[in-house]
Simulated assay, not measured.
Amino acid sequence: MSLQATQFTEAAGVDAAASAEGFLKTAEPRPHAIRRRAILAAHPQVKTLIGHDPLTFFITLGVVGMQIAIAAALGALGLGYWWAALLVAFCVGAFANHAMFVVIHDACHNAIFAKPMWNKWVGILADLPNAVPTAMGFRYYHIKHHSHLGDYDFDADLPSHWEAKIFGRTALGKAVWMFFFAPFQLARLGRLRGTVPMWGRWTFINAACVIAFDLAVLLLLGPNALLYLFASFWFSIGGLHPLGARWIQEHFTSDPSQETFDYYGPLNKVALNIGYHNEHHDFPDVPWRRLPELKRMAPEFYDGLKFHRSWTGLLLKFVFDPSYTLYTRVDRSAANRPSSPPAAARAGR
């Protein structure tokens, strides 16, 4: 492991023993802002990667059009071919909708166009094949995930204690949790501190657009078409689909000294480089197409970090390996409380 990579993993200061009773506790600050500053100091040219990528909009148009065409073909077959809708959704539609979810993700960071409003509209466009409005709610809570990574009270990406206790320790429980990942994630919002600002003008615009699209699909293309789109959404973020392992890959950790993991496998080609997760957290203002270049520009900061090569293998490992539970996540709530200064500060580092 390189010196730089070692610096940003060993500094995590995680209490591994805590996983038996709860999350892996740490009082250290988030490593990504620290690594960002170090990379910019060592490689100032990385700044050239920061910006916008309008090509993402045209990719979105193509994928949404493709999903409508597939839905129309399946709708023409009739609801008697529901099994074909599910099969095609698992094999094709999930990958298309997952790519659109990555577009929604980049739109959250205003990495497509310069104006935030234009990014919101691209996010809503990418949300249409999901059959469920997600873009604007995700926009708010994902930004909180970056600013409060691993803080139980603010990070919706961290499983709730009841999830971990009921589903998180057995193979069957973890399989059920993975299949119903979408509603489990939605249920976490009630535990987060503060008000819920997602219920604003853009949330209602998002909902109106998706519902109107759903009604048009149902009336013009038939129920089997809508079933295909909903199944594509379901499998794209969970549903015991290999793509669902992306949520395990990102912050579930088999090494308590490293809380964010990358995926460097072939599915990044159709998943719009979402596997470059350390790179993304370090530089959320770098569009998805430039993340591999970021890694190439600063290899000493990334080459020594542990990563995953297979989402399918990780999914199986997560479900059947008892060392993986829903508690194998870092909780840095203490680092964000004024009464608990980071361990590095206490040590005078």
Rank of each mutant, 00 (worst) to 15 (best):
A207K: 06
F204H: 15
L189Q: 15
F213L: 05
Y141Q: 05
L149R: 10
F204E: 03
D153I: 13
I205A: 11
K144E: 14
D155S: 04
L189W: 06
A156W: 03
R188Q: 02
W202F: 15
N206T: 02
L215S: 03
H148K: 14
Y141A: 00
P129Q: 06
C209Y: 00
N206R: 04
R169W: 11
F179N: 10
G150A: 08
A207F: 04
T203E: 03
T170Y: 13
L172R: 11
Q185Y: 07
V196M: 12
I143D: 07
P133V: 01
A171K: 10
F167G: 03
A216P: 02
L158K: 06
L189T: 07
I205R: 01
D151M: 14
F180I: 06
V210M: 00
A182K: 06
T134G: 13
A135Q: 04
F138R: 09
R193E: 15
L215T: 07
F181M: 03
P183D: 12
P129L: 04
P159C: 00
I166S: 09
P183H: 11
L158W: 09
F184W: 05
L158P: 02
R191H: 13
K144V: 06
L186I: 01
H161K: 15
H145P: 01
P197T: 13
H142E: 08
G168F: 11
F213T: 05
T195R: 15
Y152T: 08
T170H: 12
N206M: 06
D214P: 05
D214A: 12
N130H: 12
W199F: 14
M198W: 11
A216Y: 01
L192I: 14
K165C: 11
Q185W: 06
R169I: 10
D153W: 15
L189P: 02
G200A: 05
W202N: 08
Y140G: 12
T195L: 14
F138Q: 12
F184E: 05
R201Q: 13
R169T: 07
A171S: 12
H161A: 12
R193W: 14
S147M: 14
N130Y: 09
G173K: 09
A171Q: 15
L192N: 07
D153K: 13
G137V: 05
D155H: 09
H142Y: 10
A208M: 02
L158E: 03
F180S: 08
A208D: 00
H145W: 03
G200K: 09
P197A: 11
K174R: 09
W202S: 06
L128F: 00
Y140S: 12
A208C: 03
A131I: 06
F167L: 14
R139A: 06
G190H: 09
T134Y: 11
L189N: 02
I211N: 01
I211R: 01
K174E: 03
A187G: 08
C209S: 05
A131E: 04
F167A: 08
A164I: 05
W162V: 14
A164G: 10
N206P: 07
